[in-house]
Amino acid sequence: MCEAVGVQRPVLRLAGLVVFLGALGLLTAFFLPVSVEGLQSQMQRFGLLAGPVFIVTAAVLALVFVPGPLLSAAGGAMFGTGLGFACSLASSTLTSVLALLTARRAGGGAVEEIGGERTRALTDLARRHGTVAVVVQRLIPGVPDAPLSYAFGVIGLRTYQIALGTLIGSAPRAFAYTALGDAAVSGDATLAVVATGVGAAVSVLGLGLGWWLTRRNRHRSTDEVTPPR
């Protein structure tokens, strides 16, 4: 009986986290419309403090699954490519750390407790290569960052791993979307072409790197997970 209760607790913690995040995403989608123009009008009232306020505001919005590209584009529209890029990257890093710490507190260790030896080995492998895993995930197109940041917290990545991985992996895409936001306001066609080119190149790089690492580590992961006979 005690053993069954011990297993149920991590399951309930993990299930509770998943349900909470799912409900949060639905509430954001239906009741928290966010637009570039709306963020601009809200940030203008802060004057010289608009940059720091935007970093914190965008980080909180990303935690509740407001799309990162929209937030980066807003940064570019408000501050230009240079400052907007710095603010967007700082905000993305802050979001990743906050998501990791939240998930670690709510569901940290649950995967290991309810999983078997193979799950524990895979989790350990992810921890040892945490920074690389985050970089690759940030580079792959179409994969939202916030849900994966929560997942990284559940499996136990360290704070420095997700922060460093986000700084490296999110930088190219943050630049692309920030520059597009700047170009949309300034009408700079050259900047728009450069931003589009960077975004396309990052997508190709992310897909290629993800495919290569998966292929390269497939046999290695199998060897590490398989227990000695």
Rank of each mutant, 00 (worst) to 15 (best):
F31C: 13
R45D: 07
L48K: 03
V36I: 15
A29W: 13
P52C: 07
G75C: 14
A23W: 13
G76W: 13
G51E: 10
F30I: 04
L61T: 13
V36C: 14
L32D: 00
P69F: 07
G25N: 04
L32S: 02
T28M: 09
V34W: 00
G75I: 12
P67E: 01
F31I: 06
V34K: 01
L49W: 14
A62F: 09
P33W: 04
L71S: 04
S72V: 04
A73Y: 11
R45A: 15
S41C: 02
I55E: 02
G38F: 04
Q44V: 11
T57S: 09
V53R: 01
T57F: 02
L49A: 15
A74L: 07
P33V: 13
A74S: 15
F30W: 09
S41L: 14
L27D: 00
V34M: 06
V64K: 03
A23I: 12
G38Y: 05
V60M: 14
G68N: 12
A74P: 04
T57W: 11
L63M: 15
S72Y: 09
F30P: 00
V60F: 15
L49E: 10
P67T: 04
S41V: 14
A50E: 08
E37N: 02
S35D: 10
G22P: 05
L24I: 13
L71R: 09
V34H: 00
A74H: 08
P69M: 09
G38N: 09
F54N: 02
F54C: 06
P52G: 05
L49Q: 07
T57K: 02
L27K: 00
P52V: 03
Q40Y: 02
M43H: 03
I55R: 04
P33H: 14
G25C: 03
V60N: 02
A50N: 08
Q44K: 11
L71C: 05
V64F: 10
A73D: 03
F46H: 06
A62E: 07
A23H: 05
P67C: 07
Q40I: 01
V56M: 03
A58P: 01
L61D: 05
Q42E: 13
G38A: 10
Q44I: 08
L26K: 00
A50F: 11
A58V: 14
L63K: 06
A73E: 09
G68M: 11
P52D: 04
A62K: 01
